[in-house]
Design a protein around this nucleic acid. Structure first.
Lengths: 134, 134
DNA sequence: TCTTGAGCTTCCAGTCACTGGAAGCCCTAT
DNA sequence: ATAGGGCTTCCAGTGACTGGAAGCTCAAGA
């Protein structure tokens, strides 16, 4: 299989697949013409990576997960630990965004949004009650 | 004011302040010894930037907001438009993270996390929906 | 057979918003 | 005179790609 077919079947762009080879996540063989020659197992790995990335795992987490996947003596606790840590990071990120969202939506609601220059959004950014320009 | 004091009073690291000068967000004067000499207005701008960044606005949004802040003929609608667009981006991001969270938390719950190798998390990553219990 | 065009290759640079570190100048205190 | 801390610049690295240029390979059509 050439990279184009693998890209189509895995859903990953060719550039990304080459990048994954660069950083050692996949090691496709080479044809005599220099083209990458992917086997089914390579495709399988790339699809695995695509799904892990879609769940937000970092590349290093993906490397770990792939290693565990290929390690028949793994313990599921190892996998679960990686996933739980990532889940916590997601929760933290959601909380942070929701806090921003809260503040920002209040500000947006309080701005009349017309032709006049007065704007509580800018007043807030400028330092709370003070609303004079520099 | 030297950069150290500005850093302390604005809450931004000196490195970040220098970076903001590099990209033209602030233009402090210079003392004879080559040190940056910040005025109160520079500090005010930096505090503005710190708050805008804390709400998740991009640097380019910050530049726009700062421009509007200094433009006495601005219309609040312009500010509101920037804020609303950012709010929408935050909402999209939250939705994406919550979707990941949903999938991931199901997977984590379904994994025993013990010494055995069998793991529904890896099964899911390896084959999409094929090996999902329930 | 020649040409075209698609697909493949490598390498370099850019993204975003910093952050770390090195080398070296400036200022104050001891 | 020296030690320290603060300041300066410049270079490189982060994460995970992405775009683009220059050039090789291959299959098909005129």
């Amino acid at each position: 299989m050439n990279i184009g077919e693998v890209a189509e079947r895995s859903g990953l762009p060719p550039k990304t697949i080459r990048y994954y080879e660069d950083i050692g996540l996949v090691r496709p063989q080479r044809s005599e013409n220099g083209y990458r020659a992917f086997r089914e197992t390579d495709l399988h790995k790339l699809a695995f990576l695509g799904r892990a990335r879609a769940l937000g795992f970092s590349i290093e987490d993906c490397r770990t997960l792939l290693g565990l996947y290929e390690d028949e003596s793994r313990e599921s606790a190892q996998v679960k630990a990686v996933a739980e840590e990532h889940l916590k990071a997601i929760d933290d990120k959601i909380a942070q965004l929701q806090s921003m969202r809260e503040t920002l939506s209040h500000l947006v609601k309080s701005c009349h949004g017309d032709h006049r220059p007065d704007c509580p959004i800018l007043s807030d950014l400028a330092g709370g009650s003070r609303s004079k320009p520099l």
